[in-house]
């Protein structure tokens, strides 16, 4: 592979690799900007980045290829996913444009920009590729190290400082100073008693054994769901599933079946039953 990548011209194998992976990379990039859900965008981007890592390797940048996988795909993209999860994984973006003319302008600019770049590349005479044979002769990592610690040592030190600054900055930005003393458990329970509601612990979510998921509200005796049983975060995201009607329908179906078995009574409408099954299967 070393000899292959170092060459000025690409071999047939590399060409096949380029066309196959290149297509996937473009599809991934398009997916990044077109997917409704941020998590899908992030996964598409991760795919693109892995492919780029392969391309780095193909171009003789072995160190960068590995770094790309470890740092970008491994660390940065995971950080993205983490934040996406934190912010709300299922909250889909509305792709409806709100700024008048923004989409047209963006498309026009993007198209023009792309055409200009391609035109510029086409005009430049980029036929001769020297290849990295000599540069990578002593090993790619050693070559990079020699450059980083000699020519680019100041830039290297400064990027180190930049990283530390960024870490400190992130902490400063996300850290929240507590302005008052946290209430103790005793004080909290005293307050609950004083306010006179929910003296016991909050009721658990889930209805019967079949539905004991955290996003399903517990049902009150009359069959209506109780918001209190679902965690506040899920409520805020609007991710509470309401199965109260379904439960009632199931109950009715159960009764009907019992009636059938007992051989009495007219039939109830059947429409609700398969729906209910399907929902359960999806679960």
């Amino acid at each position: 592979m070393s000899a292959l990548a170092a060459a000025g011209a690409a071999s047939t194998g590399e060409a096949v690799q380029f066309w196959v992976l290149g297509t996937i990379a473009v599809v991934g990039a398009l997916g990044t900007i077109l997917m409704k859900r941020a998590v899908h965008s992030a996964l598409s981007l991760a795919a693109t980045m892995i492919i780029l890592a392969v391309f780095y390797l193909a171009n003789g940048a072995y160190f960068l290829g590995v770094v790309q996988i470890i740092v970008y795909t491994g660390a940065i993209m995971m950080l993205f996913l983490f934040v996406v999860m934190l912010v709300g994984v299922t909250a889909a973006d509305s792709l409806k444009e709100t700024i008048k003319g923004q989409r047209w302008l963006a498309a026009a600019c993007g198209l023009g920009f792309g055409i200009l770049l391609v035109a510029g590349l086409g005009r430049a005479s980029l036929d001769t590729f020297e290849g990295l044979g000599t540069a990578n002769a002593g090993g790619n990592v050693e070559g990079l190290a020699a450059l980083i610690f000699t020519t680019y040592v100041f830039a290297f030190e400064i990027t180190g400082a930049l990283l530390i600054t960024a870490a400190v900055g992130a902490m400063v930005l996300t850290h929240r100073e507590r302005t008052e003393r946290a209430l103790t458990q005793r004080e909290l329970s005293e307050r609950r008693v004083r306010e006179g509601k929910h003296l016991p612990p909050l009721p658990a979510p889930g209805v019967y054994a079949r539905h004991n998921a955290v996003d399903i509200a517990g049902l009150l005796p009359d069959g209506t769901p109780s918001e209190l049983t679902v965690s506040r975060t899920l409520r805020a995201r609007g991710q509470v599933r309401d199965v109260s009607r379904q439960a009632l329908a199931d109950l009715r179906a159960l009764e009907q079946r019992a009636e059938e078995r007992l051989g009495r009574g007219p039939s109830e409408p059947q429409a609700s039953r398969p729906q209910g099954r399907k929902e359960e299967n999806a679960q």
Partner: peptide
């Protein structure tokens, strides 16, 4: 194949990225 194709691919990806910055509203996606 001429390795210059990598450059074309790079410009394509760059343009797609730029368009995404302009179109998407979700800060994370941007």
């Amino acid at each position: 194949m001429n390795p210059v194709n990598y450059l074309y691919l790079a410009s394509l990806l760059f343009t797609i990225g730029a368009a995404g910055v302009l179109i998407r509203r979700n800060a994370i996606v941007v």
